[in-house]
């Protein structure tokens, strides 16, 4: 279906443009402004050029080392949760009951963690994991495993990862389920006639049909895990030490904790730039997948 060219469509888009520009461009200008200046308090600002950026991107300085440490930590975290949540989400989607009230019950239960405020997610796991009052911590410690997420780095990481899996795997599962639902029965019947194995059905029919929703899932999960703040902050406060301090936590520490506006602004811009680049890659891949599919449809 070709779209018609109509410049008047801008009038329909204008409200959105104004609302988002008000909350995106104006604040971003402030950030750019801060990132070039230094202040000694009393609202007196001095031109600092690209000084903050130089410091930020140089791992030998204090700011640079903190930035890179939190960046690698955050990337490792995103990689781990994607490696767990995507396969697990697919398996859960494939395990969904076929019809009846069970589907509704499963869907509502799956969606439940997604609707809990993020700080409450943190609170739930903070309570659940405590050795003295939480079921998880209590059981683990009674099994002879010395589990304490407050003082042990490995336990803190494990808790934050299990919490994220608990919180967001449902999103992947629901997306995959939506993809699976859109496959017509005829495909399965054809596979049955051909005597296709269960694995062949998965790789030849289900996975290709899910690739678009999986892409959305990976995009959303990567982005949201890359800017995760509230949940680990509530559970571990970024500790023990700095072991679970992700980029957003570091940024808030610098901006609202130390009020180092210049450093925080420089970090914000680099952080935003990384996100826009990743977002652009995904967007291009996604539109290409869409275009290929339309071409295939056109041929068929």
């Amino acid at each position: 279906m070709d779209k018609t060219v109509n410049q008047k469509a801008w009038f329909l888009v204008l409200p959105v443009f104004l609302v988002v520009a008000f909350s995106a461009i104006l604040p971003l200008m402030t950030v750019v402004n801060y990132s070039m200046q230094d202040t000694f308090g009393n609202n007196q600002f001095f031109w600092n050029g690209v000084g903050w950026f130089k410091e930020l991107l140089d791992p030998s300085t204090d700011l640079g080392s903190r930035f890179f440490a939190s960046l690698w930590r955050n990337l490792a975290f995103s990689a781990i949760i994607l490696a767990i949540e995507v396969p697990l989400g697919i398996v859960v989607a494939l395990s969904m009951p076929r019809d009846g009230w069970r589907v509704a019950a499963c869907l509502v239960t799956l969606a439940l963690p997604l609707l809990i405020p993020w700080n409450v997610v943190g609170t739930i796991w903070q309570i659940f994991g405590r050795p003295d009052i939480g079921l998880l911590g209590y059981v683990l410690n009674n099994m002879g495993i010395d589990y304490n997420y407050v003082s042990n780095e490995f336990d803190a990481w494990a808790t934050v990862i299990v919490m994220d899996v608990w919180h967001w795997t449902s999103l992947v599962a629901l997306l995959c389920y939506a993809g699976l639902k859109s496959i017509p029965d005829a495909y399965y019947q054809a596979a049955q006639i051909d005597g296709a194995s269960r694995w062949a059905v998965f790789t030849a029919i289900q996975l290709p049909k899910m690739n678009r929703v999986l892409l959305i899932a990976v995009l959303l999960r990567f982005m949201d895990s890359f800017m995760i703040y509230t949940e680990p902050f509530v559970v571990t406060g970024g500790g023990p030490g700095n072991s679970t301090t992700f980029v957003s936590i570091e940024l808030v520490k610098i901006a609202l904790g130390q009020f180092d506006l210049g450093k925080a602004a420089a970090l914000s811009l680099v952080y935003n730039l990384i996100i826009i680049i990743v977002c652009w890659i995904f967007y291009t891949v996604m539109t290409n997948v869409g275009a290929e599919r339309r071409e295939q449809k056109g041929v068929a």
């Binding site: 469509a9 888009v13 604040p27 971003l28 800017m227 703040y229 957003s248 952080y271 935003n272 977002c279």
Partner: peptide
């Protein structure tokens, strides 16, 4: 329904705002 000047860029710009980290915007 329509194609118009800068539609794809605008759509991408909107998308990138959905992904922007809240921590960046807190202070501004």
């Amino acid at each position: 329904r329509y194609r118009f000047l800068g539609d794809k860029h605008l759509f991408f710009w909107l998308l990138s705002n959905r992904m922007a980290p809240a921590a960046v915007y807190a202070l501004p």
